[in-house]
């Protein structure tokens, strides 16, 4: 079966998370094939993991002032600032991945590693769910499984502004903020930093596409969201992801 590749979309965070969930639901009901898509965030958005508490992790006042959205994800993991990055999401049936979470992360992250190598970088997969270049994190990934379907989405940093990121996140001790930023800068990198030039979204998406087809051994057919998915995504964005009830659930 051919997989579906959706067009690149630049949208707000609530909508992006809603679309990912809508695709998962559509797949669970066999309405659509396995699907891959790439997207960017506008405006910038902090997403927190499903098990995090927004209040504990994010400086909500600063985020509001900066015009940065705050959205809880459907997937676990940590708080991420989506600023200058390309995000991918992949939705496939659970039978297509190993049941062991560790193994499934590896299977679905290797396409990203391939793509980075195509771009000329010495990338490697670091268990459980990170991708590193020269030992520094360039991509974080998160997965959930619902109704026999797996959704994994992850980031690929084009450019990173650590200071901006930490201005929006809470740090355990304000006095240590500089130290925290310093340590984080040493552990994180971006495509721009590694390639020494600015990188266009299109270039990254082209490499990612090749990565998924080559590593997963699939063929991609260009398609678009079905009516079912668009309607569901709009409802999910409005009634779930954009609501305080969902984002401040914990």
């Amino acid at each position: 079966m051919k997989w579906r590749l959706l067009p690149m979309m630049e949208l707000n965070g609530a909508m992006q998370m809603a679309i990912d969930e809508a695709i998962l639901t559509a797949r669970a009901r066999h309405k659509v094939p396995n699907t891959i898509r790439f997207y960017t965030w506008k405006p910038s958005c902090v997403t927190i993991g499903y098990f995090q508490s927004a209040q504990q992790e994010v400086d909500l006042e600063k985020a509001k002032q900066a015009g940065v959205d705050v959205v809880r994800r459907y997937t676990g993991g940590g708080a991420v600032l989506h600023d200058n990055e390309v995000t991918y999401s992949i939705v496939l049936t659970e039978s297509d991945v190993p049941s062991n979470i560790i193994d499934s992360y590896k299977k679905l992250c290797l396409p990203i590693v391939y793509a980075l190598r195509l771009l000329g970088l010495k990338a490697e997969f670091a268990p459980i769910n990170d991708i590193l270049v020269s030992g520094r994190k360039i991509s974080g990934n998160a997965q959930t499984r619902k109704q026999g379907v797996v959704l994994q989405h992850g980031t690929l940093l084009l450019k990173v502004d650590i200071a901006k990121m930490f201005s929006l996140l809470k740090v355990p001790n304000e006095k240590l903020r500089d130290k925290v930023i310093e340590r984080a800068s040493a552990r994180v990198t971006s495509l721009e930093q590694e390639l020494g030039r600015s990188v266009a979204v299109d270039e990254v998406i082209a490499a990612l596409e090749k990565g998924f087809t080559a590593v997963l051994g699939i063929s991609l057919e260009r398609g678009k969201l079905t009516r079912f998915e668009s309607e569901l995504a709009k409802r999910l964005a409005r009634e779930k992801y954009a609501t305080k009830e969902w984002s401040f659930m914990r």
Partner: peptide, 15 residues
Amino acid sequence: IRITGDFFVHPEESL
């Protein structure tokens, strides 16, 4: 008790 953090639990409801 409430447990929060940047971890994962599969399936999520188990937490």
